[in-house]
Simulated assay, not measured.
Amino acid sequence: MLTPEQQQAVAQHLNTRAQQPTCPVCGTTSMRVQRDVLALPTAGADTSDIRRVIITCTYCGHDMHFDPDVMGLSLPPSTSEA
């Protein structure tokens, strides 16, 4: 989970490194940084999950995923259970 400070850092990163995020589905700019981090399992048993920060359009619900490493977020290693 992201802390409120990390959520703010994500919003600031997007506002300073890119144009204001616009939903590709409905075109609105009303976005929310989710607290939960998405963990995508990888095929190899010895590899860790691929993690993504979730940005959600508050109008239509479309999700966009961003790499936390590129944003400079320090997240603890994820653990997945089989």
Rank of each mutant, 00 (worst) to 15 (best):
D49K: 04
T47M: 07
G61W: 04
L75W: 09
G72D: 09
G27H: 12
T47A: 06
T79C: 01
V70L: 04
V37S: 10
C57M: 02
M71G: 02
L75N: 08
Q12L: 12
D69K: 08
L75T: 11
V70S: 05
P68V: 01
H13C: 06
Y59M: 00
Q20D: 10
L75C: 09
P77Q: 07
C60R: 04
H13N: 08
Q12H: 15
L75F: 10
L14R: 00
R32C: 08
I55S: 01
A82Q: 15
P24C: 01
S80K: 01
S48N: 09
R32T: 10
P77N: 04
S30E: 13
E5R: 08
V33Y: 07
A43N: 05
P68E: 03
P4C: 06
D69Q: 05
P21E: 01
S48Y: 12
R32Q: 14
Q12V: 05
A11Q: 08
G27I: 09
Q34C: 14
S80E: 04
I55V: 07
V10L: 13
S30V: 04
P21G: 01
E81P: 06
T3A: 12
V25R: 07
Q8W: 06
Q19S: 14
D49G: 02
G44N: 10
T56V: 10
M1P: 14
G44D: 10
Y59F: 00
A9F: 05
T3G: 12
T16E: 11
R17K: 11
T16K: 03
D36A: 15
R32H: 11
L75K: 10
M71T: 02
V33H: 04
P76Q: 07
R52W: 12
H65I: 05
D67P: 05
H62R: 03
G44C: 07
V25G: 00
H65N: 03
T42G: 13
A18P: 02
L40F: 15
V25M: 11
R52M: 10
C23Y: 12
T58Q: 06
V10H: 11
C60D: 09
A39G: 01
A45T: 05
M1Y: 10
P24V: 02
V10E: 15
V33W: 07
T3V: 13
D36C: 15
S74E: 11
H13I: 05
T16N: 03
Q34T: 08
T28D: 10
D49W: 02
R17M: 10
G27N: 07
T79K: 08
G72Q: 11
L38D: 11
S80Y: 03
G27D: 15
E81W: 15
A9Y: 09
P76R: 03
S30H: 12
S48A: 14
H13K: 02
T47N: 08
A43Q: 07
C23S: 07
P21L: 03
S78I: 00
D69I: 04
C26H: 09
Q34N: 09
T47I: 08
V10A: 14
P41A: 11
I55M: 07
E81Y: 14
P77Y: 05
Q6K: 14
V37K: 11
M71I: 02
G44F: 10
L73K: 00
E81M: 13
V70F: 03
L40S: 08
